[in-house]
């Protein structure tokens, strides 16, 4: 382990062209993708938010009603699209075949479905190819990909390499190489591992860290979401041990202990994450008030903005 924990250089991360957020399902990847988008935009970046086969989750989190799959502008400097392999195949094939009529003849809908299922990694290649093409063409500074959760997320990133290794020369392989160059370029791309301080999310983040490292993907850090605030000062243990338990404050004492047990569990998992990763870990708070929505995303964006300015 390094002598001092590495710190998250958010500013450097936002200089990349592509940030990919992945991690266990339900840890807040979408909310943090949206919040990062807002934080990057506040830095003057032109941002493209992308999700995969998850229609309109990001627009909903940002409080902007959207229809279809995009791409469209949710706000000035903030684009969005929902990546779907079927749509990407059409665009990709059209480039190659030129003629829509020919496309229709060859890629009739049922066939497209069958083909996407049959050829391993094709759906992933198409999704990433579509994103790369759009990033190049849209004039965006930064694309933020709200990737699928751990297993499918890793498969998405690994697909180009798998195709490069197995497919003979041809358009598919060339496309895969073109995407692979972007994904493995540390100056252009960073994967961010998202977790919450619980057992499985941390396990998955650590596994993913090693898996992605083997694949040669640059990793920018981990975002540890939903960390409970710790209001207790040093020396609290001794004070709580000395509090007379029989008093009117019986409930207070047991509540404090129950809360501290939760904090201890969270801290153990956070420590495990830090020990298991060779990466900086940025903590984000559990937002307890009200249902999570655009206000929560804005608050997370503000926390990221504070981290950008170097505040604690």
């Amino acid at each position: 382990m390094p002598a001092s924990p590495p710190t998250t250089d958010l500013r450097a991360l936002l200089q990349r062209r592509l940030l990919v957020l992945t991690g266990k399902g339900g840890v807040g990847k979408s909310a943090l993708s949206a919040a990062l988008g807002l934080a990057a935009r506040a830095q003057g970046k032109r941002v493209l938010l992308a999700e995969v086969r998850a229609p309109r989750r990001l627009p909903a989190l940002l409080g902007v009603p959207a229809e279809g799959d995009g791409p469209l502008e949710l706000a000035p400097q903030l684009g969005w699209l929902n990546l779907r392999p079927e749509a990407a195949l059409e665009i990709y094939a059209m480039r190659l075949l030129k003629l829509r009529m020919v496309y229709r003849a060859v890629f009739e809908q049922r066939m497209v479905q069958a083909f996407l299922r049959a050829v391993p990694s094709l759906a992933e290649i198409l999704v990433l190819g579509h994103l790369r093409a759009l990033l190049d063409e849209s004039g965006s500074d930064l694309a933020i990909l709200d990737a699928p959760s751990t297993g499918p997320g890793a498969m998405l990133l690994e697909a180009p390499q798998a195709v490069v290794e197995t497919a003979p020369l041809g358009a598919l392989r060339e496309g895969a190489e073109w995407i692979q160059r972007l994904l493995t370029d540390p100056a252009a791309t960073a994967v961010l591992l998202v977790a919450v301080p619980e057992e499985l999310p941390v396990n998955e983040a650590i596994d993913l860290h090693h898996r992605l490292r083997r694949g040669g993907f640059p990793q920018g850090g981990a975002l540890l979401n939903r960390v409970l605030p710790d209001p207790f000062p040093a020396g609290a243990d001794e004070v709580l041990a000395r509090l007379p338990a029989q008093l009117a404050a019986h409930d207070l004492l047991s509540a404090a202990r129950a809360y501290r047990r939760r904090l201890a569990i969270q801290r153990a998992h956070a420590d495990r994450l830090r020990a298991g990763l060779d990466l900086p870990v940025l903590e984000l708070p559990e937002l307890l008030e009200g249902p999570f929505g655009p206000a929560g995303v804005a608050e997370l964006a503000a926390r990221l903005g504070a981290a950008l300015r170097g505040a604690p």
Binding site: P231, P233, G235, A236, L240, L252, A256, R260
Partner: peptide, 14 residues
């Protein structure tokens, strides 16, 4: 010395 802050924190945690 930590007692006042601890009790405030206990109330907050409740």
């Amino acid at each position: 010395a930590a007692a006042p802050a601890t009790l405030l924190a206990a109330e907050r945690s409740q």
